[in-house]
């Protein structure tokens, strides 16, 4: 691989790892606060899965860059994070958390379905591993969306509100990275437009079936993963606080 391609792959891995990490962290904020015990456990499992996926992507990236995952996660400031804004938004009510997780899981399903065919073999292997878990996540979150969307007046209203708020954020998941075109040409990652089309084929009929109105906007909330909301700074301050009590070399 040329250095250009390596750099572009590392950027892809960082974006995917940061999405998983920050979403997993937001989900973990429900641990001990879930609506009922069983759902608390279920979402905590999902949070742990997302952190596990972040570790897998980070370990793959380390093979290219040599960067230690713990250092990348705990010693990087908000402006260096490359997650989409959707995952850093505060957890909101349960409808918001579940809708965000559903839209993200469906995007993962669409992306991973093609990423398992990646010409970069290590990426294809990790994608295959993650995919089986995302099948379950999607099952869990879609089961909830159906019940919330078609449930009471209140659950419907909260779920529609969440969808209205999140849609433009979700579209950022399909904005290509700056050097992505070269990787698409080499068959390393799928073309973002194709992933988005597969995602829409999945979520639009489903959301309608759940009694929800899909927003019309086609404009992602942001075109660059270098832009963040103020929420990421606060999230990282909490997430990194303990690790930063000591120097990065200290072993826990």
């Amino acid at each position: 691989m040329t250095p250009d391609v390596e750099r572009a792959i590392a950027a892809q891995l960082l974006a995917m790892a940061d999405d998983e990490l920050i979403l997993g962290h937001r989900d973990s904020e429900w641990t001990g606060h879930g609506p009922i015990l069983e759902e608390d456990i279920a979402l905590s499992n999902i949070a742990q899965d997302e952190l596990g996926h972040a570790i897998l992507w980070h370990n793959l990236r380390k093979e290219i860059t040599g960067d230690e995952p713990d250092v990348v996660v705990f010693w990087r400031d908000a402006q260096a994070y490359r997650n989409v804004q959707m995952v850093e938004l505060p957890k909101g009510d349960y409808a918001f958390t579940i809708m965000r997780q559903y839209l993200f899981d469906a995007a993962e399903m669409a992306r991973l379905a093609q990423l398992v065919e990646s010409r970069y073999q290590p990426m294809a292997e990790v994608a295959a591993k993650i995919r089986t878990e995302e099948i379950y996540h999607t099952r869990h979150t879609s089961t909830w969306i159906k019940r919330l969307g078609l449930g009471t007046e209140e659950s419907h209203r909260r779920t529609q509100t969440a969808l209205d708020e999140l849609w433009a954020y979700a579209l950022q998941l399909f904005v290509p990275l700056p050097e992505e075109a070269a990787l698409v040409a080499k068959g390393v990652v799928p073309e973002a437009g194709e992933v988005q089309a597969a995602w829409e084929d999945m979520v639009v009929p489903f959301l309608k079936h759940a009694g929800l109105i899909v927003p019309r906007t086609r404009h992602p909330i942001a075109m660059s993963r270098e832009q963040h909301t103020e929420h990421l700074t606060a999230l990282l301050a909490e997430m990194q606080e303990v690790a930063r009590l000591e120097s990065p070399e200290v072993r826990w």
Partner: peptide, 11 residues
């Protein structure tokens, strides 16, 4: 039942 099955899996 469907949610019970999912909850059972997670618990």
């Amino acid at each position: 039942g469907e949610m019970a099955l999912l909850n059972a899996r997670d618990v």
